[in-house]
Design a binder for these strands. Structure first.
Lengths: 237, 237
DNA sequence: TCAAAAGTGTTTGCTATACACCCATGT
DNA sequence: ACATGGGTGTATAGCAAACACTTTTGA
């Protein structure tokens, strides 16, 4: 162990979002999984899933790996959030954390395992976390809500096909406000981000709803030159 | 030197923007300083200013330090851009680069030193750079142009007070298109991001222009929970 | 008095919002 | 039949773009 070895460590953490019904009201809300730390600093506290960056894996790969290890799921959307590296953020060591945020399908997350050391929390009822992770979660939530309004990420919570009501429910859950169904329909259909499949979904005690599919070819231009083609476990691949 | 010492290194680089007249046309355009690498990999190539993260300095501090070392200037605006950490981005070593982007006052940058190993380039005429730095510059330019349209950063290129023509010239230089003076005035004045000082600027062979000052209290809400109060060398402090 | 930029007024068109209304299904 | 959400039509307000016009200076 040389003097250099005590220098800067690199870790990758991920804020993982899914939608679940609120425990009391039953309304859909944003949830995220946390893991319990098993050693100091902050032993016993809840923290974001993550770990040291392996020398042979890319940053997004590392984020997707811890996501899979924590939730047994694959991300439908994955994007870098921010690099946190203040000198005082981890007592006794210098850690730079590259933080990603991810969206997973809510139907898959609904059956996800919970263990003694992994638990899902409602985004607005997060306990006191280790390190600066409360700030990180706040920032990730802000980015999610912000980006939902000018980008095309809502479908990542849903399956291959979906009705506009389901898509609207996603928006309402994330933004925490109800939206006019008529205007929402025009907005989404006009944006070209979804395409009707031709099928409908029957079963409700009302008129059947048209099914839509996400339009991968729609230009969104929300990530600029970093929109790599078909990068592994990256964005909307 | 243990096996661990060969692991992941952390560097901080900065894309520094200023406005200067185009060499041929004389119109204001975006420029940035690059430094010549003195050793391999990519020895002799131009690259972004930066260096290894010191264990006792915050990320933004490191960015501001290399900025000052390169240009002898202080940033008027400084924001984290992205963390680049692909395994293959630096031959023979594993480097994660936290990249910042900065705006400096154009009048200060106009007299900045150029040496054998530091030169300013026009943003649209960048040579082949070391590492993935061309991609980084492209992304920084995209962010600059994007953020200029929904945020209040243009004043960072100017001094304490400025006329709306000067502010419009900044927008036109960055966005590379001419803007209607009348509509620009209404847009800026209506946003509350600037306040008239009461003074005017005489000297042109035309009606004197009112002088404005940036309004620090105006809410912009473009950085969410990360808008720390009075962070050193951070953002619009 | 004239050129040039500062600054004001007005029209037009697009888009978001609100909400009235009709449609198609299960019970 | 009727309740329930799916889906369409339409009026209105606000805002951005285009552009005509007036103001104030230096030469």
């Amino acid at each position: 162990m040389t003097a250099h070895a005590a220098a800067v460590q690199v870790a990758v953490s991920t804020v993982i979002f899914a939608l679940r019904p609120h425990e009391d009201t039953g309304r859909m809300t944003v949830w995220l999984p946390l893991v319990r730390r098993i050693r100091d600093p902050f032993g016993g506290r809840w923290a974001l899933p993550g770990g040291p960056l392996e020398p042979d894996e890319d940053l997004a790969e590392s984020a997707a790996r811890t996501l899979a290890e924590t939730t047994l799921l694959a991300p439908q959307y994955l994007e870098q959030l921010y690099a946190f590296g203040n000198t005082d953020r981890s007592p006794g060591e210098r850690v730079v954390s590259i933080v990603y945020w991810a969206l997973v399908r809510s139907d898959e997350a609904a059956v996800a395992v919970e263990t003694e050391n992994v638990r899902w929390f409602e985004a607005d009822s997060i306990p006191g976390l280790a390190f600066d992770h409360n700030l990180i979660v706040d920032y990730a939530l802000w980015r999610l809500r912000n980006k939902l309004e000018y980008s095309h990420i809502a479908h990542a919570f849903l399956g291959e096909t979906f009705t506009l009501s389901e898509l609207r429910e996603v928006h309402e859950a994330v933004l925490q406000k109800s939206l006019d169904p008529a205007n929402f329909r025009r907005q989404i259909e006009g944006s070209g981000q979804v395409v009707p499949t031709g099928d409908v979904q029957t079963g409700g005690r009302h008129r059947p709803a048209r099914l839509y599919r996400y339009n991968r070819d729609a230009a969104d231009g929300t990530s600029g030159p970093l929109a790599w083609p078909a990068a592994p476990a990256q964005g909307t691949t």
